[in-house]
Design a protein around this nucleic acid. Structure first.
Length: 305
DNA sequence: AATCATCCCAACCGCAAGCAC
DNA sequence: AGTGCTTGCGGTTGGGATGAT
């Protein structure tokens, strides 16, 4: 197709921004708005590509950026949203005013991911790749629905109001529960039936493959994940100390394998002790977000100096 | 004090969706 | 409908800061 480069790389500065450049960009946007990012650098007298300007503005210079450490309730929200949305950082960021997708992504990769038991990661890229167009479409529907529900869930957590999910205030949920959504779900269930047979065959083949390549452990981890919704995980049932040592034991020798796991992560274990573990809060102090009126206030009091 | 390892985060890259023509 | 441009997104990287030896 011949994608054109986002900018002419000759004579374009790269790397860290100087205070002068920041000032020029802020001044220009204050006066004129950003308009077309492509033409902005020239008009603002910057030797940068438009993409770089956009990124700098969005991630750093915007006046409504909230800087500094994440609060414990922000951490909780990120964990909760990531469990529902996966690595959709922009969607997660939209629920956290003043936080950027980049910041959340970095925070997740450098802080939160380390605290998670490795078995919580269940990427399945191979299956996603082989999806039919209609399945991909379904995934988009599901994804949007999950996002809408995440939004409602978060709102209800923060306001302790569980009535919102019933009234379908969200536009997408209205659509989802409308005739259109209903007809879509009929198509979906038909297709699921057709696919089930293929999936069973595929699973048998892949399990055989896993067995033969001595990866039975990961296979059983995936199976155990599927059970987590109805039963607390063994990890969650451990004491705090056991969890710590378990995390250590799970840590790969080179520290690289866990880092390389990217993509969708199913946070199925939302038990209190797991949240405690993730947030480094002593056992017994946290009822899950939204289930305890005083949780946010208490943690705020305890954390903000 | 010097060197090496690790962590953290700003910035970059490539891709895809949306839009205008 | 096809094409090219712009924007937004998620993954990755480079390099400064910090800690360990």
């Amino acid at each position: 197709m011949g994608k054109t480069p986002c900018c002419d790389k000759h004579g374009v500065r790269r790397g860290a921004w100087t205070p002068e450049e920041d000032e020029a960009l802020v001044e220009y946007i204050k006066k004129h708005g950003h308009g077309s990012w492509r033409t902005l650098p020239k008009q603002a007298g910057l030797l940068r590509c438009g993409k770089s300007c956009r990124l700098r503005w969005i991630n750093y210079l915007r006046p409504d950026i909230k800087r500094g450490m994440f609060t414990i309730e922000e951490e909780g929200a990120i964990i909760q949203l990531h469990g529902m949305l996966g690595n959709r950082w922009a969607a997660i960021a939209s629920h956290l005013p003043g936080r950027t997708d980049n910041e959340i992504k970095n925070f997740w990769n450098t802080q939160l991911k380390k605290r998670l038991p490795r078995s919580s990661f269940a990427p399945d890229h191979a299956n996603l790749k082989s999806e039919s167009p209609s399945t991909r479409h379904m995934v988009q529907w599901e994804s949007a629905r999950v996002e809408a529900e995440a939004r409602l869930s978060l709102e209800s957590s923060l306001h302790n109001s569980f009535s919102a999910s019933k009234s379908y205030q969200d536009h997408f949920l209205q659509l989802w529960h409308s005739e259109v959504g209903q007809s879509f779900r009929v198509i979906k269930s038909k297709e699921e039936e057709e696919q089930q047979q293929a999936v069973v065959t595929q699973n048998l083949a892949s399990q055989a493959s896993l067995l033969s390549s001595s990866k039975l452990e990961s296979s059983s981890e995936v199976v155990s994940l599927k059970l987590k919704n109805t039963e607390s995980s063994s990890f969650a049932n451990m004491t705090h100390e056991q969890q710590k040592s378990s995390s250590k034991a799970n840590k790969p020798e080179d520290g690289g394998a866990a880092e390389s796991v990217s993509g969708y992560y199913e946070f199925l274990d939302t038990s209190d002790s797991s949240i405690n573990h993730l947030l480094d809060v002593p056992d017994g102090e946290v009822l899950f977000l939204g289930q305890n009126d005083n949780f946010l206030n208490n943690t705020l009091d305890g954390r903000c100096e």
